[in-house]
Design a protein around this nucleic acid. Sequence first.
DNA 1: CAGTACAACTAGTACGTACAAGTGCCACGT
DNA 2: ACGTGGCACTTGTACGTACTAGTTGTACTG
Lengths: 360, 360
Amino acid sequence: MGDPGGTGSSDGPGTPARRLKRPTMSDVAARVGVSQALVSLVFRNQPGASPDTRRRVFQAAEELGYRPDTAAQLLRRTRSRQLGVLFTMRQPHDVGIVEALYPAARKHGYTLVLNAMVATRGERQAMEELLGLRSEAVITIGATSSWQHLTTGATRTPIVEINPRTRAAGVDVVRTAEHKGIRQAVDHLVALGHRAIAHIDGGTMPAAAERRRGYRAAMRRHGLADHIRVHPGDYTEESGARVARDLLARAQLPTAVIAGNDRCAHGLLGTLLRAGVRVPEDVSIVGYDDSQLARLSFIDLTSVRQEAAESAELAVRAAAERLDEGRTADRDIVLDPTLAVRGSTGPPRTRSTPDGDLLR
Amino acid sequence: MGDPGGTGSSDGPGTPARRLKRPTMSDVAARVGVSQALVSLVFRNQPGASPDTRRRVFQAAEELGYRPDTAAQLLRRTRSRQLGVLFTMRQPHDVGIVEALYPAARKHGYTLVLNAMVATRGERQAMEELLGLRSEAVITIGATSSWQHLTTGATRTPIVEINPRTRAAGVDVVRTAEHKGIRQAVDHLVALGHRAIAHIDGGTMPAAAERRRGYRAAMRRHGLADHIRVHPGDYTEESGARVARDLLARAQLPTAVIAGNDRCAHGLLGTLLRAGVRVPEDVSIVGYDDSQLARLSFIDLTSVRQEAAESAELAVRAAAERLDEGRTADRDIVLDPTLAVRGSTGPPRTRSTPDGDLLR
DNA sequence: CAGTACAACTAGTACGTACAAGTGCCACGT
DNA sequence: ACGTGGCACTTGTACGTACTAGTTGTACTG
């Protein structure tokens, strides 16, 4: 009694400390004097046990230090009700989505199992592990691989991609209407009086191509095709810093820059400030993501907001639709971003424009 | 054939799409014409199968889309060889440790299972989930709870805490010799000629108290007790920004500030720069963590470095010692930090000191 | 008073794998 | 010819839980 699975012998000196077996439902049941099945009922909060018995079961479990074995539950249960999440820890906005996934999953009756993509472990391997753990569906955030082989064959697993790098068939996608976000940024700057508006892109990173196209389209829409300048970047601070140095080396700065994301904008802003350029007086800067970074008082970045909570909720819902409602057709969910205007944008300084006109 | 667990009927319209059962080892075995146990041998890379059979097993598995079931493995195996990791995604240094844990765990023959602590899920719950998944030990990074109840009782689970907030008994601890780090920072600044060196602390955050004490001790050691100034903070950018505003409001700035961590230093630096204060000419700034932030070209922060890889390796090793070598006594592992000198520190400007002397 | 309905429980089995303990079979040495 | 050993494989069972299908006992109905 009170010695579940133990041999009764204490770990003798010299022998490697033997881990005692963890107590099981049967141990709890034996202690209360009921069957294992009844303990199972109690822990699942199912009807069929008297209030008094429930209390005694919980008390015995407490005394024994019993803890349900997830592996066994997973194995036995008809449904695992687990969603795998494949994510990166380095992009703040992605972290925000992960955090928002927890309440969203709970709301739909699912549990999350995380797997980070780090340098030493490819996306594929991380995905394999998630599937091995019986994820019913997998939500990826900013992934670059295509999962064609998973959505095909006997055991197709639904995949929902949030802000994927590439477009793929057979998966649901939750993404932002990037062009609308960029267009709002351009509109905002043009309304302030800007004409020389440059863009730092994200290279091959997720959504970068669309933002780049959106920038070009919005500029043309305002008749500013001649002012289109796309500087290559990669969503990192250093790429923003590099562009800043390039711009400083030239005689003429643009009056405004739209960065591919907030990190890039941060690098741009920091480097310009260090060089004595005033923001927004000399140059206005717009970021993208509206991350925590943008909201810091000393950065205070006008930025295109994508609601992390909304993306998370819709991704979970998309998975739930496939799993619980039998949807089989792909969905492409597009969210409209909004512009969070802060202190990094303002009217351009009065100065001579490249074509010689003097703007008021 | 080729329809493992399937009923042969395609998902009819109107009925919710039924997920086909995933293939098992038995399905693979049947296809090859061998026993399930042999397939198990092959997948575990154990001796006892002919090279030809191995090939056929792998091929059949490939054709069926077979994937080992982790839940079943976990349930059946004597040892799970899994280490739980409890971490925060918001502190860059912690993220670095998590990434370094992967290779360290692999080296010792362990697998990692992550669980993030987010606002909506307490540390306790995250820990429960890890234990439910049969983690043999748990490594926490910057956790605040005490796990007394886990290291006691029938099924004690080894806990290794990296940079814990509070000291606890019954657990292994991997931490930095905080006072040495701070002392190096103070020594460095004093050597540059600074005397008015302030400190922004981390409040109740991990290691903050020790850094605070280390600052005071180092200052006294240099006979600068009169210049001791501790400003309250909490390791966030905004706390650094707030202190910056406080300092600016006073007539007299210190010539140097040691921030509790890099994020705090970032807030301090950004706010001072915005106010026209030059760094390091007017004020020198030292951070703590040597995170990626500190290394950015436009931040370029002198910072106390704690090797994430080293912490990770030692934490895994501590867990392995308990699990594989039967160690039962607690270990307190203390790492020596080093100072990464960058551009945010320099000699103080010649100016009158608070006591009226004129320093050269 | 028989019959029924319900609450409170138990028995048995299946989930997919790992591991211990076999079972043939063939080559080899004496 | 007979053991002997090793390889290649199989059989059987256990892991801890969930779920289906019972089995009691009690109260209630007509």
